[in-house]
Computed example of a mutant assay.
Amino acid sequence: LPTSAERLRGYDHLPPAVVEKFLEAREAIDLRYVDEPPYGKFGEPREPHSQVWFRTNGKLDDDPLLHVVLATYVSDMTLLDSILLAHGRGGWAVGDVVGASLDHAMWFHRPFRADEWLLYDQESPSASGGRGLGQARIYTQDGSLAVSVIQEGVVRVPWEG
């Protein structure tokens, strides 16, 4: 996992209170990469595919909408990282690139609980001209497809000179 300094790199232009709230929100979710995370082998191109197990840190109420909202929040945390893998970039986790989501669509196929482990299977079939496409599926522990996700993003590497 990235060190505290790595986690804060790239956020120094934001007020400390904003950064603190952002990091606090991220810590409410337990994310565990199946393989090495995008920031693990910085500079080495890899297959544009990653898998992340996730769940909330704590039990949630039974309201299905709450679980949908939290899965929606998590779906935007790591999907565009898959675009960067083929280019050997470290990603947002280490402040290596600048990016923004252009489109983000989700299809909810069946009920699930965000406080139980869900597998987020992510890949990028296309990246060019500063834009990339991420597509993913979220599976329950029994292997049922719960959610499909598509996201297009703008991805820029800051000038290094």
Score class of each variant (00 low, 15 high):
Leu1Val: 15
Leu1Pro: 15
Pro2Lys: 11
Pro2Trp: 07
Ser4His: 11
Glu6Cys: 08
Arg7His: 13
Leu8Ile: 15
Leu8Val: 15
Leu8Asp: 15
Gly10Asp: 04
Pro16Cys: 05
Lys21Gly: 15
Phe22Tyr: 15
Phe22Ala: 12
Glu24Val: 10
Ala25Asn: 12
Ala25Asp: 06
Arg26Glu: 11
Ala28Arg: 14
Ile29Glu: 09
Val34Arg: 03
Pro37Tyr: 04
Pro37Met: 05
Pro38Ile: 02
Lys41Thr: 14
His49Cys: 06
Ser50Gly: 06
Gln51Lys: 13
Val52Gly: 03
Phe54Trp: 00
Thr56Ser: 13
Thr56Ile: 03
Thr56Gln: 07
Leu60Asn: 09
Asp61His: 10
Pro64Tyr: 00
Leu66Gly: 00
Val68His: 02
Thr72Lys: 01
Tyr73Ser: 01
Val74Glu: 01
Val74Thr: 10
Val74Trp: 02
Asp76Tyr: 07
Met77Ser: 11
Asp81Cys: 11
Ile83Tyr: 01
Leu84Val: 08
Leu84Ser: 08
Leu85Tyr: 07
Leu85Ile: 08
Leu85Pro: 05
Ala86Glu: 13
Gly90Glu: 02
Trp92Cys: 10
Val94Asp: 02
Asp96Trp: 05
Ala100Phe: 12
His104Lys: 08
His109Gly: 12
Phe112His: 03
Asp115Lys: 10
Trp117Phe: 12
Leu118Pro: 00
Gln122Ser: 05
Ser128Val: 10
Ser128Phe: 10
Arg137Asn: 08
Tyr139Arg: 04
Gly143Ile: 08
Ser144Cys: 12
Ala146Ser: 08
Gln151Phe: 03
Gln151Arg: 07
Gln151Met: 11
Gly153Glu: 01
Val155Asn: 02
Val155Arg: 04
Arg156Ala: 09
Arg156Asp: 06
Pro158Arg: 09
Glu160Gln: 15
Gly161Glu: 14
